[in-house]
Design a protein around this nucleic acid. Structure first.
Length: 264
DNA sequence: TTATATGTTCGATA
DNA sequence: TTATCGAACATATA
């Protein structure tokens, strides 16, 4: 689920769900503590009886301020999700749960357990430590261009590099490259300033559209590449050029060969 | 059975 | 020291 738009939508969902609510207890459902990067005792102590204040999102990293306390950081990995529920039956793949005074509960679900739950005193210091780049929705086109057009790595790999720009994930990178008619293996340093500008515009447009649609991809406009992002699919504008799958930087990468030619 | 999945990190190598 | 690459992580589904 989680690239920038999903995390932003979850941030809003989280804020609405926890507003004004007191946490009466929290519960842990990951026996080997893979996703708890802070000790259970610390999480329990910081959260029990507390309320959340403001929230922040930088790239795919989410932070919620615990009133009069530290911040809670959530990362959703590949399969993380937030699910509001009532009653005692945990949603599938619940790894952690907040239990509010209202009787409402909020589960952090994560099938693959690549997610992260941890405390931090300072979100900005936290992302600085990771050398995280500026958020795609905040960065200006000049900085974007400068950070992207560096090195001999494939442009696809550069787009996914969170240290350059934060928030772009695998499907958005493919969508941007399709939109800009760029081949994913084009070396980053071969991208022109104009192409970088185009990628910047494309990236924001895609992300804003995704947020506006609450990340329900099915609701995206018909021309979006995401609808055809599988081997052999036919984009209506390229009926003679079936979608091809490559592997770039270890990630599945889909292109319309007639539109995205190498060395261009 | 093998391959793949919307992400990040770590070790090896250059 | 920096850049790059591939493997690893955990689990379900095609």
């Amino acid at each position: 689920m989680p690239e920038l738009p999903e995390v932003e939508v979850m941030r809003r969902y989280f804020s609405a769900a926890v507003e004004g609510q007191q946490i009466v207890r929290v519960s842990f459902h990951d026996p080997l503590d893979k996703i708890f990067k802070s000790p259970r005792e610390a999480l329990e102590k910081a959260l029990t009886g507390a309320r959340f204040g403001e929230t922040q999102r930088i790239g795919k990293y989410f932070f919620a301020h615990i009133a009069n306390g530290p911040w809670l950081h959530l990362h959703f990995g590949m399969t993380g999700d937030l699910v509001l529920y009532r009653g005692n039956e945990l949603p599938k793949y619940t790894r952690f749960s907040f239990h509010f005074q209202s009787g409402q509960n909020l589960a952090f679900c994560d099938l693959r357990k690549f997610g992260v739950i941890q405390l931090t005193d300072d979100p900005l210091a936290f992302v600085k430590e990771l050398s995280l780049g500026p958020d795609l929705l905040k960065i200006n086109p000049e900085d974007f261009s400068h950070r992207l057009r560096r090195g001999k790595v494939a442009i696809k790999t550069a787009l996914l590099d969170q240290k350059r720009v934060a928030g772009i994930g695998n499907w958005i990178a493919d969508e941007m490259l399709f939109d800009c008619a760029l081949h994913p293996l084009t070396p980053a340093e071969k991208i022109s300033k104009e192409q970088a500008q185009q990628l910047w515009e494309s990236g924001r447009a895609i992300v804003e559209q995704a947020i506006a649609e609450d990340t329900h991809y099915g609701a995206f406009p018909a021309g979006f590449f995401v609808h055809y992002r599988k081997g052999g699919a036919l984009h209506p504008e390229y009926p003679d050029s079936p979608v091809e799958k490559l592997t770039v930087g270890g990630r599945g990468t889909y292109i319309v060969p007639a539109r995205q030619k190498a060395g261009n």
